[in-house]
Computed example of a mutant assay.
Amino acid sequence: MKARIAAVLAERKRNPITRILRYQYEGKTVYYQSAPCCDQFSQVFDTKGRLICNPDGGITGKGDGKCPDFEKNKTNEKLVWQDPR
């Protein structure tokens, strides 16, 4: 997580700002990192930092199709970090 945050802070400020949220999904803790802009993918990672899926974004706005039920089935949202700039 620290490496992800450092990478965001090393870039110019994004609009909208980057947010990392924690959820429960399919019985596991996962982290959602918002997309930097427009047609780019947001990302969902497991607790070890491995990419699980891109639930939204892209040209269709529906992500990569690997977790089409993420929006409907995620629970226990908690803001972990957002760009303070």
Rank of each mutant, 00 (worst) to 15 (best):
Q40P: 03
D69A: 06
G61R: 07
R85N: 04
V44D: 01
L9Q: 12
K74R: 13
S34M: 04
Y23R: 05
A6S: 02
A10F: 08
G58W: 08
R19G: 04
I52G: 07
F45T: 13
K66P: 00
N15P: 00
R85Q: 10
R4A: 13
K62M: 12
E11V: 02
Q82E: 15
A6P: 01
R50E: 11
P68N: 05
E71W: 05
P36T: 15
P36F: 15
Y32E: 15
F70A: 12
V80G: 04
Q33F: 09
T47W: 10
S42N: 06
A7Q: 13
T60S: 11
T18P: 03
R14K: 09
T75S: 15
V8P: 00
V80K: 05
R4G: 14
R19Y: 06
F41I: 05
N73K: 13
W81N: 02
E11I: 00
S34W: 04
N15V: 05
C53V: 06
Q40S: 15
P68E: 03
L51Q: 09
D69Y: 00
E26I: 09
R19A: 05
A7R: 09
L51C: 12
S42W: 10
A10W: 05
I52N: 12
P16V: 15
K13L: 13
Y25L: 07
D83I: 00
K66I: 07
I5M: 03
A10L: 05
K48C: 03
E71P: 07
E77C: 04
G57A: 07
G63R: 11
K72W: 01
G65F: 02
A7E: 14
S42E: 08
Q33E: 15
Q24E: 13
Y31S: 02
